[in-house]
Design a protein around this nucleic acid. Structure first.
Length: 297
DNA sequence: CTAGGATCCTGTCAGC
DNA sequence: TGCTGACAGGATCCTA
């Protein structure tokens, strides 16, 4: 899915469209994609957009909130006009799309993969999700922090000290480091892409036991995680803007920053060795066998 | 408690 | 062409 940088991008992007906008009607096409009674969120205004790790939360006027998790293939696509008057009369941007990159960003909606549709006064927000792992959940605003998922989230890399991170790695010393940094209760925000990118940047082999990392390794890895995610947020994450190039052809937003992810067979940007793809912690894993050594002293 | 694997679901792609 | 299995930007549940 969409990892932390994508959700942060979605939050910032949607803010201009749906903050202070009223939800007129909610249509649920797939029952398991919406938890709770959608009627309760109708005729309510979105006061605030918040992010908790990879979850997006829309706070409503009636002290309820919609918690949205995109998981692997979720997307949020808004079709309509920007709310901000500052957008002016010549609003070019009529659609804002972000999340799992696919043709849905530019397709006619709703379509086969549309699970929930939220009609606002100024447009429509589509929640698309091919694999149905994602969901929208209606909760009391006061209960958001007590939600089982949000409650166990660890700190984000920016809020964590290298010492803290190192201590956490020691607690899971027999697991592969990649598995450990994918665990949201240990460090929050990384997914499969940024885990691979962070490990590459810190020159750490994904299969190394967490306990074999030195304090310096831990510090480097934490720094790398911050850097790769900041860079992705700065480039707009996975959005319609990065998916459709200026000439109308399809691009891959990974081109903007990925050094190893989806680059198997291509030269390592650091040493020229061929990037390889393996399997670690049950996930496809990309690395440079020269820059990231398993053996170390 | 940790660690690893199966599982939820749909779609696409490589290999016969 | 049609079938089959592998796999996918996540997290949880079950087992040992």
């Amino acid at each position: 899915m969409p990892e932390l940088p994508e959700i942060e991008t979605i939050k910032r992007g949607l803010n201009g469209f749906i903050k202070d906008a009223k939800i007129k009607k909610i249509t649920v096409f797939c029952e398991k994609s919406f938890l709770g009674n959608p009627k309760i969120a109708e005729n309510q205004t979105v006061n605030n957009l918040r992010r908790f790790g990879k979850a997006l939360v829309l706070d409503l006027t009636n002290h309820k909130s919609l918690m949205i998790h995109l998981r692997m293939t979720g997307q949020l696509i808004f079709d309509g006009a920007k709310k901000l008057a500052s957008a002016g009369p010549n609003v070019v941007e009529k659609r804002y799309a972000a999340g799992h990159p696919s043709e849905n960003f530019i397709a006619a909606l709703p379509n086969k993969q549309t699970r929930v549709e939220l009609e606002f006064e100024n447009g429509t927000l589509y929640f698309n999700d091919q694999r149905k792992f994602g969901f929208i959940k209606l909760l009391e605003t006061a209960e958001i922090e007590n939600d089982s998922f949000i409650k166990k989230l660890a700190k984000e890399p920016w809020a964590m000290t290298a010492e803290e991170f190192y201590e956490k790695l020691q607690k899971h010393k027999n697991s592969a480091i990649k598995a450990v940094i994918l665990d949201q209760s240990i460090i929050c925000g990384l997914g499969n892409i940024y885990a691979d990118e962070s490990l590459f940047a810190a020159k750490i082999h994904p299969e190394r036991k967490s306990g074999s990392l030195s304090k310096i390794d831990a510090e480097n890895l934490l720094e790398a995680a911050k850097n790769v995610m900041e860079k992705s947020i700065a480039s707009g994450g996975s959005t319609m803007a990065t998916y459709v190039k200026a000439d109308g052809t399809r691009g891959d937003y990974l081109e903007l920053f990925a050094q190893v992810f989806h680059r198997e067979g291509k030269p390592c940007p650091c040493c020229g060795e061929k990037i390889i793809k393996t399997r670690v912690a049950g996930r496809g894993t990309h690395l440079c066998p020269n820059c990231q050594r398993k053996e170390h002293d």
